[in-house]
Design a protein around this nucleic acid. Structure first.
Lengths: 343, 343
DNA sequence: TTGTAGGCGTTATCAC
DNA sequence: GTGATAACGCCTACAA
C-alpha cells in the first residue's frame, strides 16, 4: 500500500494537517514534531502525490514539449536541453510527437490540455495546424523554437536563431572562397526558417552584386533524401553551381553522398555548406562546413522563457519578448580553402 | 476560468454526477440528456482534468521514460517509437534524462514516483545505480531496453536485441571477406550489450579456429571520440588488424574519420563494421556496414510490454517474459567485397 | 502550536 | 434515470 500523509499522521499521533505542514517545512510546527514526522515519512517511504498536490495548487509543474520527430538529432539535442533545464527547476517534461500528422497534433494538444501542463514548448519550424490555433487556446504560455509567431497571443513567444544572418554567413563564406554560382537547397516552403535562410542567401548575393539565378534554388525535404535528389537536378543545369548552401546538415549529408556517387570530388568540384552543426558534421567526409546553432541555449532558453511566463513567475508577460540567438560559421573541409576563379 | 463538470451541471440544470455519466457515455443516462450535455460540454470548451481523474482511478495513464541522453540518435529513434505507441494507447510519456549522472538519475526516479507514473521504460545499457534498486521500489512495471535484468522483480522485464548474435553476424561477415585479424572496439565495461557483442565476436572467431588476440580488443566510449582514439592504438600494433568491428555506429564513424585522417583507404586498408544502423550509416563514406537493430520494434515492444504489465492488463505478470529481437547485417561498402588473403 | 473542516475535479456507490 | 454523498491525497483558512 502507498503511504499518504494520513498514514503518517496516524503513526505519529498527530493530524494530517500537521504532517502536511511538517513536510513542507512550515514554521507553524514545533521543531520537535517536525523532525519526528520527517523522519517517520522517510522511514515509511512516503512520496508526495503530485496529482493531488496539483489539484489543489492549480498547477502541475509539467511542461508539454511538442516535437515533429525525435529521430532528428537536432531536435534531440534541443529536447535534451529542455529536459535538463526543466529538471533543474523542479519541472517535468511530457513529450508529444506529431510525426508531421495533423491528427496526432490535435491528439497531442488535447492530451496536453487534459494533463493540465503549465506551459508548452514547440520545436518545429513547420507552420502546422496546431501551433497557432489550438495551442493558444490552452490558455498557457507557449514558446515556439525556431518558428515565427503568427498570431501574437498574450502568452505566445518564440526563441530562435537568426536564420537570415545564418544564411548570410554561409553564403558570404562561399563568396569569399571565390564562388559565384551558389545554389540553395531549401526545405519545403512552409518552413519559415528555410525561408529566412533563403533571404540571407539572397541578401549576401545582392551585396556581392550577383543576381540570384532561380535555377539555383531547388527544394529539398529537410532530410538526407532531399539532398540526394537535389544534386542531379543541379548537375543537370547547363551551368551548374560550384557551391551549394543547404537548408540543414541532413540535406547536406545527402547531397554529399550523391556527389560521391556521381564521382565528384569535394570540395574541388563542389563546395558544400550546411546548417545546424549536428553531432555528425565533423565526421562527414569531407568534414562539413556549417552554420552552428546554439542548441543547448535554444532548449534552455525556451524552457526558461515558459517558466518566466508562468503566473507565479516574477516577470510580466507583457514585458516578455521574443529572443533571437545568433549562430556562427564552423568552417571545415567541405567548403574548401580559398578558391581563385578561373580567368 | 476553466470549466468543470459542475459548471456544465449548473448550465444544464442537472447534477454533476449526471454530467460525469453523460460524458463517459454511460448507459444510465437518457439519450436526450446525454446528447444535450455532450453538446453543452463542447460548447463550453470542457476538457477533463486528468489529475482529478487519476486521483480517483488510481492510475495516471502516464509512462516514465528514462534515457541517458536524447542526443544519441539511436535513443531518439527508440523514444520516438515509444511515444507514438503510447499515444496510440491513450498514454502519455514523461521524459527523464539522466545524463549519466547518478544524481539526476535519483532525482528522475523521485519525480517519476511523485508523478505516479503507471510504469517505467529505461533506455540505457548502462548498469546504473538507479535501474535495479530505485526503480523497482516504485512498485510499477519496469521494462529495460537492451539491458540485462539483474534482480528479477515481479514486474521487471527487458526487451532487447540479441547482441551475441549480432556480434556473430558482424564477425562472420568479416571472416567471410577473408579477414583473420579482426579487432573489436568495445564500449566501457559496464555496458552489458557491449560485453554480449564481444562474446559473439569471440564465438565467431572460435568457430573459425582463430585464437582471439587480446591486443585486438580495445576500449572505446560508445561515442565517436572513442573510435577516433582507438584507431591509432590499433595501427600502432606490430601486426595491425585488417578489419574492425565496432560496438556501435558512432564508434565506427569516429574510427573511420581517424582512418581517413591517417591516409588509409577504406575498405582496402581497413574494413569496418558498426552496430545500430543509425540514420547516418548509409551516408558515411564509405557507407557503413552495420548490424541493424529493429529500433521501432524495440520502442513499440517496450511500450506494449509495460502496458501488458499494468494491473488492469489482461496478461499475468508471471506469464510475462523477456523479449529478444534479432538484428540483421546490412552490408555496405565500409567492409568491402570478398577479399582473398595474400598467400 | 495543533486540529477541524472544506475544497480541488473526478468517479462510484448508494438511495430515490 | 437521476441526485446526493463519499471518496482519492493534498493544502489551507479558520478554530481552538
Amino acid at each position: 500500500m502507498r503511504v499518504s500523509i494520513k498514514d503518517i499522521a496516524k503513526a505519529a499521533g498527530v493530524s494530517h494537517s500537521t504532517v502536511s505542514r511538517a513536510l513542507s517545512d512550515s514554521s507553524l510546527v514545533s521543531a520537535g514534531t517536525k523532525e519526528r514526522i520527517q523522519l517517520l515519512a522517510r522511514e515509511m517511504g512516503y512520496s508526495p502525490d503530485a496529482q493531488a498536490r496539483s489539484l489543489v495548487e492549480g498547477r502541475t509543474r509539467t511542461i508539454g514539449v511538442v516535437v515533429t520527430t525525435m529521430t532528428d538529432p537536432f531536435i534531440g539535442g534541443i529536447v535534451q536541453a529542455i529536459e535538463t533545464t526543466a529538471q533543474d527547476h523542479g519541472y517535468s517534461v511530457i513529450l508529444a510527437s506529431s510525426n508531421d500528422s495533423s491528427e496526432r497534433e490535435i491528439a497531442a494538444a488535447e492530451t496536453l490540455q487534459s494533463k493540465r501542463v503549465d506551459g508548452v514548448i514547440v520545436t518545429s519550424s513547420r507552420v502546422g495546424v496546431l501551433h497557432q490555433g489550438r495551442l493558444e487556446r490552452l490558455g498557457v504560455p507557449v514558446v515556439l523554437i525556431n518558428s515565427l509567431v503568427q498570431h501574437r497571443g498574450r502568452y505566445t513567444f518564440s526563441i530562435g536563431v537568426d536564420n537570415r544572418h545564418g544564411g548570410i554567413l554561409a553564403t558570404e563564406h562561399l563568396l569569399q572562397l571565390g564562388h559565384r554560382r551558389i545554389a540553395y537547397v531549401a526545405a519545403p516552403d512552409d518552413r519559415s526558417d528555410s525561408m529566412e535562410r533563403l533571404t540571407g542567401y539572397h541578401e549576401a548575393l545582392a551585396r556581392a552584386g550577383i543576381d540570384p539565378d532561380p535555377a539555383l534554388l531547388v527544394r529539398g525535404t529537410g532530410r538526407a533524401g532531399g539532398g540526394e535528389r537535389a544534386l542531379p537536378m543541379l548537375q543537370a543545369l547547363p551551368d551548374p553551381p560550384t557551391a551549394v548552401f543547404c537548408y540543414n546538415d541532413m540535406t547536406a549529408i545527402g547531397l554529399i553522398h550523391a556527389a560521391h556517387a556521381a564521382g565528384l570530388s569535394l570540395p574541388q568540384d563542389l563546395a558544400v555548406v550546411g546548417f545546424d552543426d549536428i553531432v555528425f558534421a565533423p565526421y562527414v567526409h569531407p568534414p562539413l562546413t556549417t552554420v552552428a546553432q546554439p542548441v543547448a541555449e535554444l532548449g534552455k532558453g525556451a524552457m526558461e522563457m515558459v517558466l518566466s511566463l508562468l503566473p507565479d513567475g516574477n516577470s510580466d508577460p507583457d514585458a516578455s519578448t521574443d529572443r533571437t540567438l545568433t549562430g556562427w560559421l564552423v568552417a571545415r573541409a567541405s567548403s574548401g580553402r580559398k578558391r581563385y576563379p578561373v580567368g
